[in-house]
């Protein structure tokens, strides 16, 4: 019998207020895992059970073929994040977790933008692309594809600049992150 077990009506406002409060702090978790089937499901499942929405998720190989790195970003209040990292540690296939401090971390994301360009707009888009140090990777008569690498902020800024020209499509990889200095992430 779950609480509240009594018969009083619960208002929707009350229900929503009792949900977890979210802080604005973005967390970048860097997780080393054994390269085994099902590991990603286990990790994602833990976040889902705690009511966390994973904002971005990248998985890739490391210099050791038996080990992969998962980098994910979430928005969470400090306390529940602590619970999630402790729960993650309990997963047998998880080797190491770091909740990266933004100031001590270099984080990069790659994005591809497909932008509609007709006639005179093309030059302007190319100019913005140059300012953002993007690469043009495909050009056709009516569209252009630009590749941008950088922090999330930079990519979002670029998006803001080119959207008015007619953004057909955008794809982002999600961040990967590495700690600054000599120590391993």
């Amino acid at each position: 019998m779950g609480e509240p077990g009594t018969k009083e009506l619960l208002s929707l406002e009350e229900l929503e207020a009792s949900g977890m409060a979210r802080s604005g702090r973005k967390h970048v978790l860097s997780i080393l895992v054994e390269n085994k089937p099902g590991v990603l499901t286990r990790i994602a499942g833990l976040f889902a059970r705690r009511g966390f929405n994973i904002d971005t998720l990248t998985v890739g190989p490391t210099d050791d073929e038996h080990i992969s790195r998962v980098t994910l970003t979430v928005d969470g209040a400090l306390h529940p994040i602590d619970q999630v990292t402790k729960q993650l540690h309990k997963l047998v296939n998880v080797l190491k977790i770091r909740d990266l401090e933004p100031d001590d971390t270099v984080a990069r994301e790659l994005a591809l933008f497909k932008i509609a360009v007709d006639g005179p707009q093309r030059a302007e888009v190319l100019q913005i692309c140059e300012i953002f140090r993007g690469n043009v990777v495909d050009v056709t008569r009516r569209a252009i594809i630009i590749e941008i690498t950088g922090s999330t902020d930079k990519i979002e800024a670029f998006e803001g600049m080119v959207r008015p020209f007619g953004l057909i499509e955008m794809m982002r990889t999600g961040e990967i992150a590495i700690s600054r200095g000599r120590s391993e992430t």
Partner: peptide
């Protein structure tokens, strides 16, 4: 394995 994932300490196929 999928069905029991949140209910086990660990599992293997």
């Amino acid at each position: 394995l999928g069905i029991t994932m949140p209910a086990v300490k660990h599992s293997w196929m």
